[in-house]
């Protein structure tokens, strides 16, 4: 056994100083190991036997290294190439509704001009222009009562707002994917839940296979294109205003502010963990919160003791931010979502009273379904995750 070479999959290897990020890009699974682990992987990739690899690792570490146990761990992670050739491999699912395959499909050189130095200068200028316009021109500021449902017919408002939201979301998520393509990485789209919100998401986990500084572009690409769209709409409104432009501007500002809620694992959360060099802050935050309330379960104290020190350092304050986030989300729902839903249901009740023979009846039901649908999906996903946890 120890004289046989170990066949590894095509693994990614990123040197982060004291640690090395290793991953299987096809499956989308990544791990962090000490630098000596990187020496072991590199030796195995070069076809060295376990024996020879152990000798090189000992030379590097200055003490004997248990290579066979590490190879066994790699096997458990699925990092060894043990398939029949020709087997198609699928990435591991990370969301309840998700594309089953990685999405490539665009040559990197076509996407690259959108994320070069000139492009980022443009994104920055658009963000500054939008901010200045919102601060300096009071008439452009979003007004929840006026812009979102400026039309007197709330049903028409629903029909206007939700499709616009979907189009803007598609552009935002598509831009994340384009930025990943510029780095020659694939991504995949999915739908998931964040606390009480339904979210459209782009899985950018393959960013773990590139150096840290190159991860920021794809993470900020969504907000970058939001800034451009907002700048165009605000500029347009200065010249010629109308209801649709008001609604688009309102939704864009609303969505960009929403991204600031890092405790929901938004784009800016990913930027934060990249900046702090965290590896698994989300899990460590949960463990630290449980520890604070004396609710650690079996094995979790050991898991916490083995956690990355940077994760623990950040988790000590991030856990309270997350807890405060529960109240922020409750306030957000009470301030934004509830008033809209209440007035919608009142309007629906009045319209439905006309009876199923009237077209108003069906129109009102369709509008209600469109606005209530996402909230019902959130409830469904919450119930589903509760059931799978209990199983």
């Amino acid at each position: 056994m120890t004289t046989q070479p170990v066949r590894l999959r095509r693994l990614s290897l990123v040197d982060e100083g004291e640690e090395v990020l290793v991953g299987d890009p096809e499956a989308g699974t990544f791990i962090s190991i000490p630098a000596v682990g990187g020496v072991v992987i590199a030796a195995l990739m070069n076809g060295a036997t376990v024996e020879e690899t152990a000798r090189r690792a000992e030379e590097y570490a200055g003490e004997p290294v248990d290579v066979p146990a590490f190879v066994e761990t790699l096997r458990e992670l699925g990092f060894l190439d043990e398939d029949d050739p020709g087997d198609e491999r699928m990435p591991v699912a990370t969301a309840p509704i998700q594309g089953r395959r990685w999405l490539s499909g665009l040559r990197p050189e076509l996407a690259r001009p959108l994320f070069g130095r000139v492009a980022w200068f443009g994104y920055g200028a658009a963000a500054l222009f939008s901010l200045a316009a919102l601060v300096l021109v009071p008439a452009l500021r979003p007004d929840p009562a006026g812009d979102a449902f400026a039309v007197s017919d709330i049903g028409l408002g629903a029909l206007l707002v939700y499709p616009i939201t979907l189009v803007l979301a598609a552009v935002h998520e598509g831009w994340h994917w384009l930025a990943a393509r510029a780095l020659d990485l694939p991504a995949r789209f999915g739908i998931d839940r964040r606390m009480a919100f339904l979210v459209f998401e782009t899985d950018l986990s393959l960013l773990w296979s590139v150096p840290r500084k190159r991860r920021y572009g794809p993470l900020l690409a969504g907000l970058a294109i939001d800034s451009v769209m907002l700048a165009v709409v605000l500029g347009w409104r200065m010249v010629a205003d109308n209801t649709v432009l008001g609604a688009v501007a309102y939704i864009l500002v609303f969505q960009m502010v929403w991204q600031c809620m890092v405790f929901l694992r938004t784009d800016l959360y990913a930027v934060l963990i990249t900046w702090l060099r965290c590896k698994d802050l989300w899990r460590v935050k949960t463990l630290l919160l449980r520890r604070a309330f004396g609710r650690l379960r079996e094995g979790e104290a050991a898991e916490l003791a083995a956690a990355d020190p940077r994760d623990v350092r950040a988790g000590l304050w991030f856990r309270w931010l997350w807890l405060a986030g529960l109240f922020v989300v409750a306030a957000w729902l009470a301030f934004f979502a509830l008033p809209v839903l209440v007035s919608l249901l009142r309007w629906t009740a009045a319209e439905v009273a006309a009876g199923p023979a009237a077209w108003r009846f069906w129109y009102a039901l369709a509008c209600t379904a469109l606005l209530l649908g996402p909230w019902l999906a959130v409830a469904g996903l919450a119930v589903r995750s509760r059931l799978t946890r209990e199983r």
Binding site: A69, A169, E201, L204, L219, G222, D267, A270, D280, A337
Partner: peptide, 19 residues
Amino acid sequence: MKIEVRKVEPIKATTNGTV
């Protein structure tokens, strides 16, 4: 010495779908 392995979390970019 034993080589300790730590998992890293998935990286997701999101848009709010409930407005």
